[in-house]
Nucleic acid binder design. Sequence first.
DNA 1: AAAAAACTGTTGCAATTGCAACAAAAATGA
DNA 2: TCATTTTTGTTGCAATTGCAACAGTTTTTT
Lengths: 209, 209
Amino acid sequence: MDTNFDKKIFIENFKHGCNKIQLKKFSKGETITTYIQKRNQICIVLSGEVDLIRYDLNGNKTIISHFICDDIFGEVFYPVNTNNELFAVACKSSEILFFTYDTLFTKCRRNCDFHKTLTSSLSELFLEQIISLNSRIELLTKRSIRSKILAYFDLQTRGSINRNFFMPFSYTDLADFLSIDRSAMMREIKLLIDDGFIKKSGGKITLLY
Amino acid sequence: MDTNFDKKIFIENFKHGCNKIQLKKFSKGETITTYIQKRNQICIVLSGEVDLIRYDLNGNKTIISHFICDDIFGEVFYPVNTNNELFAVACKSSEILFFTYDTLFTKCRRNCDFHKTLTSSLSELFLEQIISLNSRIELLTKRSIRSKILAYFDLQTRGSINRNFFMPFSYTDLADFLSIDRSAMMREIKLLIDDGFIKKSGGKITLLY
DNA sequence: AAAAAACTGTTGCAATTGCAACAAAAATGA
DNA sequence: TCATTTTTGTTGCAATTGCAACAGTTTTTT
């Protein structure tokens, strides 16, 4: 993700003591936050990676989303859901910025510049988030495994001249992301190779069409 | 959708002549806009309803999303896509507010209050949008037709005491929204009725579990 | 009021997809 | 370094799902 969001300004301002925002560090496996309604918490990933996890009534674990640097997450982005709790867990050691949504629209005691920056940066971040959600929906609404895969590959090669890319995560995770069975996905990828649509060596995929 | 977005202020300010924002009316079937990259257009539905439509290479029509009052749409929310064009079309006679994303961060000639309101309202609208996209993803990632339907019904009955609701759109459209075959969906709904999970009379659904 | 269009309800059949299960390879970590 | 865990790759089989097709309703248009 390539935002205009200026991390340096954030951290700089943070150091100068805005009292409404907190920066915390987490090591791998630590729970960053649980999604509790009405706390209005917003989190931004400054470094590291974060999984958003749900445990359903049967105890099954699902990774709902995966956040990387500059991504924004928090319970305010989710519809009210009484059925099951969501957890944000650090996959790597990560630095996370915390604040509440209300914070943005009230001035802090020092009336710091941070708030002004934050408010305008936030629209930018929200927008990035919307684009990324829309593109995931675009993939999820494809009606077959083949078209899901191709659409994903296509998205990854946008802007590349050679029409190739390296998988940003494992095939197991890709199946999860596209909400399809892993083995069925692997089968379909093999068929795509046999049909001469793509080439694959390890994590490198090249489109041939 | 229940936003804090204050339409009255918008329109009031518009009348007072902010030169960066346009209000246009469309009658049913009219094309409101085509999604052309780099124009950075943002639209807000003040009244009426709007479909976002894609025609793919085979000429198949897909309704990608359906916007109602207070919803926000525009090409800035979509990833770059060279394959096929998107069209926003009025389903009913509609009033739409137009402006560009850049507009928000530059003052208009009159330095009007509108901009201030708009900027802060916008975060609110963006947030609503993110919540609604997340909840759609939640539905789309369910692995079976039955669980998709139940999750949708569940979402609709949130907050209702009688655990019932009226379909906000046709069953045909619901199948589209959940990205499943309509006949397969109808079959599954019948099974849910037979299994005693739900009750259905016309567009009214009651959950029995 | 009649005609046309869109939506609902249903079904048999075929195709895709998910599931279970396993071996091999790769990555992790003790 | 060796042991353990995770990921990849593969397959047969069963189940779900999509497709096609049609009749009956309802809604919209002329």
